[in-house]
């Protein structure tokens, strides 16, 4: 039985901000289904009383003094921008 449908794959691609062709959607469905099926072996393990690990070291919040510092120079920040005008990064209009 398939764990993931092509419609789900298209939904996930939208969440991931990836445009995909119909062919790619079919392909991703096949590959993701195989990987997810493989991952379901984790269900063999009883983890009800196990704490999740998000970080391997025993570290708590790392604090530092809040000291103002010089920001990056504008020309550096714009150096790699694909499109910029008047010192600002330009994108297609976002308000109709």
């Amino acid at each position: 039985m398939s764990r993931i449908s092509t419609d789900q794959v298209k939904h996930v691609a939208n969440l991931a901000r990836l445009s995909i062709t119909e062919d790619e959607a079919q392909n991703f469905t096949k590959h993701l289904d195989a990987i997810i099926t493989f991952a379901e072996q984790l269900n063999e393990l009883d983890t009800d009383n196990v704490e999740p690990t998000s970080h391997v070291l025993d570290m708590k919040n790392v604090m530092r003094e809040d000291v103002p510092k010089e920001g990056l120079p504008r020309e550096d920040v714009l150096k790699n921008a694909p499109d910029h005008v008047d010192g600002q990064i330009r994108v297609p209009s976002i308000i109709e």
């Binding site: 991952a39 984790l42 269900n43 393990l45 983890t47 196990v50 704490e51 999740p52 690990t53 998000s54």
Partner: peptide
């Protein structure tokens, strides 16, 4: 689930 197995 994977984070929990990571603990194990």
């Amino acid at each position: 689930k994977a984070q929990k197995v990571r603990t194990l």
